[in-house]
Nucleic acid binder design. Structure first.
Lengths: 350, 350
DNA sequence: CTGAAAGCGCTTACAG
DNA sequence: CTGAAAGCGCTTACAG
């Protein structure tokens, strides 16, 4: 458009040159109200007008100032995403799913990784984002005042994972129960009789659902193990290691099912240390199908959840809410799938 | 502040209530110009005034509209971060380092994961961010027009990794040469004679530095291998697998050093398949010290780089540039460290 | 279908 | 050290 490289033109527009709606208006001969209307695809603008305005926008390379439109009541086209962290593959995948759709739909994403009440409420009030995607974990519940602020200002939001108990917000869920149920049936097939479930924290919804699904799966398969003990970890490798260590000090088990792969990794590490063979002495399985599970020795049997798709679905739903004013109440449940590898005792071709 | 739960008060302020600078001004009895000054810590405001204004801000719970301040020439307190992806641990760690400092310094971060020229230039012109953090990989070079736009508008930016050749922007670097040099010395200790280096893409700066460091390390140790072959991958597991497969079809090697851990994983996987023992038949080492490397069998010898710190350093530098108007030209080089595990042949206590 | 005008909530010369 | 006023670049009733 403007040749920056050829030095001598630059002088007067080094920092200031900004094409505004006024330039567009005067170039195409319509008012800026009209320009604004076509930019926002409002509808009732004569097609020929739309065309001329769009030509002007294009030829000027006009980019609306999002600050200005946000201030005057328009949209900022940015969505805040609140995640506990991005270091676990699970969250990184979510984020990449969200981002993929954001890019495609021309939204920006603002990332927040701390449940910092003040910062969040500031963000709500700052006019900076159009909506929120919230990952709710039992671990660090989303602040209540923050949710109140959101509702109060009428800013749409959605949960990845179950909303807080009293809240019926839109949400993207996965079939925790179904995945664990498949695992249980597989356990029944192996005829495991002394089973340890290494759960997440006591109040964690995902973990509770997985345990629940596991139990009904067992009973559906009419498999009645001698015992089904439950220990609690915090989803970390270290906690899986610790849990199985304590459990094994007191009891013996055929098999341990962990509420996620990181804890399963911890369990396998403990077994390696003690010379306990997996799966010959004890089977170990997980949940998530994290990157590394396939490369463990033995390769981990686990439940795959569509992490990327969860993020994508969340962003899609937000875009719909924002742009099509679709009914706010809405849940989507994404499927999970048992992935059988060798840590359960299958495939002796190790 | 306002009791949302007790329904009957809500009626009139359900969506609108916003505390503005005017409210603050009238509460404390100063003009909004003054309020603005204290908010922006401009300096020449009488201390007693500052105090009264701050009291008013606090008691009203006032949050400035970032849209308004951005529009009127102020700052948006948000930094754009451009990353190729977040799915690899390397980028996820960077991001978490960036985020940690952003939170602490009260900045927001806007995440961009595609090198989409138009979207980026729009962002530059949209007034939405104060600065950019750019991860430059040889793979997907940062668009030139985008950089031009940045400079033209005077928006500060910084690279993680080497800037493009002709560019002397601030950057956060790691000591690729030093890390690979340590690895080379270790190789000399093992007396490996037939060495394969699985590099990144041909024009990749990190990979080239690692190869360079490896070579000078070898010569410093006066170790002269019979051969040092180089194959190129793309940093993916699959490419490591592929590279070593081709290499092994034509030659034999004592040891292979991979430019990152994912390719080392691929190499180890190929060896597993072929029944080639690592490290007895061939040693395999990597670079990065990714999460999984410790849990591989054999545990991977690799070079650790401080990923989180890189992100943190980047954000810190941006904040300094923005707030203290520190000189723009600046580089920081962070150290790397050899982590010796067993895939190189050390620690036979497997 | 289109335009004139007010207003969104700040910041920043300018004047004192 | 402080204030009155203009202006940033949009959007949105309101009127036609």
């Amino acid at each position: 458009m403007i040749n920056i490289e050829s030095g001598y033109i630059m002088k007067q527009n080094t920092e200031e040159s900004r094409v505004t709606i006024d330039h567009v208006a005067s170039l195409c001969g319509f008012s800026k109200a009209t320009v604004s209307r076509v930019m926002n695809k409002e509808g009732n603008v004569k097609p020929s007008t739309v065309e001329r305005v769009e030509d002007a926008i294009r030829s000027l390379g006009y980019i609306p100032s999002s600050a200005a439109s946000a201030l005057s009541g328009g949209k900022s086209r940015t969505i805040a995403v609140l995640l506990p962290d991005v270091m676990t593959e699970y969250y990184a995948s979510l984020l990449s799913g969200v981002e993929a759709i954001a890019e495609e739909s021309n939204y920006n994403i603002l990332l927040k990784m701390r449940n910092n009440k003040k910062a969040l409420i500031d963000l709500v009030n700052s006019n900076k984002v159009d909506a929120f995607i919230l990952r709710n974990t039992g671990l660090q519940p989303v602040d209540h005042d923050f949710l109140v602020a959101l509702k109060r200002r009428g800013i749409p939001f959605l949960f990845i994972g179950k909303p807080p108990v009293d809240d019926d917000s839109p949400a993207i869920l996965i079939d925790n129960v179904g995945g664990a149920r498949q695992m249980a049936r597989h356990y029944a097939g192996h005829n495991f009789r002394k089973i340890l479930f290494i759960a997440g924290p006591k109040d964690n919804l995902d973990s509770n659902d997985r345990l629940y699904g596991f139990k009904i799966g067992l009973s559906e398969a009419e498999h009645n193990p001698e015992k089904l003990d439950v220990m609690h970890g915090d989803y970390s490798k270290a906690s899986g290691y610790q849990a199985i260590r304590e459990a094994l000090d007191a009891n013996t088990y055929d098999a341990v099912f962990c509420a996620n792969d990181h804890m399963a990794l911890g369990a396998i590490l403990l077994c390696r240390e003690r010379g306990i063979r997996v799966p010959e002495d004890v089977a170990v399985t997980g949940f998530d199908d994290t990157f590394f599970s396939e490369f463990l020795l033995p390769p981990l049997t686990t439940v795959q959840q569509p992490m990327h798709e969860i993020g994508a679905a969340a962003m899609e739903m937000i875009v719909q809410i924002l742009e099509r004013h679709v009914p706010r109440e809405h849940k989507i449940i994404l499927p999970t799938r048992l992935v059988i590898r060798q840590s359960c005792g299958c495939g002796h071709d190790l």
